[in-house]
Nucleic acid binder design. Structure first.
Length: 264
DNA sequence: TCCGGAAAAT
DNA sequence: ATTTTCCGGA
């Protein structure tokens, strides 16, 4: 797992839409949760590391983390007090929540991570559900297992993955690993290692009980942050990413999501 | 330590 | 819109 994240972190961690648009005041700067995932994946064990639960992380050296963050953002006076304020702003956005009772410990809400950062989500007009019973009871697709054997491979398997047959210390999804509920244009398929195109077009989110996303979003003018990863062995990566996630952990995350929803 | 309001900065 | 800065309060 570390191999994957460490390889990826500098080049392709996040698709374009995860960044602020160029014209916005914050102009295309990395966001804090990007940065945290980078460090967690890359391994900055002195500053931050994964915690016991899925998605949970512990800030081992708050001031060092703050220093690193400040360097990235060009804020020499960054400290943990200010960084943690930024983290607290993530509570309402469902990106993070606090693990209470554990010092310096927070937890990612991966399922919400993609929703809140997905452009235009939730859709302004949820389609009237004819069978709302089904829709309401349907669980969130986290993690979404790609349909076996139907993963479109680009230029073929990448040998990088072959050397990486290591156990996965911490089953984990990047935000970009989460189900991309869309039909990627053929031109983009395989350009991003963590997408899992639906077996049949448009099937993903419908099966999950979530309304489909507006189709205009997917192609966009954006494309991906970096497109040089075509040819990654998607099925292998998917097994690595999703294979070890226990059902109990999935259910726990679903409960968390449900709780968050009720708190609205 | 942790929280969240308020205002400024980007 | 996302922090950064500052800070009173639990």
């Amino acid at each position: 797992m570390h191999f994957l994240l460490s390889y990826v972190h500098k080049s392709v961690l996040f698709p374009d839409w995860a960044y602020k648009p160029t014209w916005s005041p914050g102009s295309r700067q990395v966001q804090l949760w990007h940065f945290l995932l980078e460090l967690l994946g890359q391994g900055e064990p002195g500053a931050i590391g994964w915690g016991g639960e899925w998605g949970e992380f512990v800030i081992r050296d708050p001031e060092r983390l703050a220093r690193l963050w400040g360097e990235r953002k060009g804020k020499p006076h960054m400290n943990y007090d200010k960084l943690s304020r930024a983290l607290r702003y993530y509570y309402n956005k469902r990106i993070l929540h606090k693990t209470k009772g554990k010092r310096f410990t927070y937890k990612f809400n991966f399922s919400k991570l993609i929703l809140v950062n997905y452009p235009g989500y939730p859709p302004p007009l949820p389609p009237p559900p004819p069978s709302h019973q089904l829709l309401q009871s349907a669980p969130l697709p986290l993690p979404l297992l790609p349909p076996e054997g139907r993963l479109p491979l680009g230029a073929g398997s990448c040998s990088l993955m072959d050397t990486a047959a290591q156990p996965i210390p911490h089953p984990f999804l990047l935000p970009c690993c989460l189900p991309k509920p869309i039909t990627l244009p053929r031109a983009l398929q395989g350009h991003f290692p963590f997408t899992s195109p639906p077996a049949h077009p448009g099937a993903n989110l419908r099966e999950s009980g979530l309304p489909p996303l507006p189709s205009a979003l997917h192609t966009g003018a954006n494309g991906w942050q970096q497109k040089s990863l075509a040819g990654w062995d998607l099925s292998r990566i998917s097994r690595s990413l999703f294979g070890e996630v226990k059902q109990t952990e999935v259910e726990e995350e679903e409960r968390n999501v449900a709780q968050m929803g009720e708190r609205e």
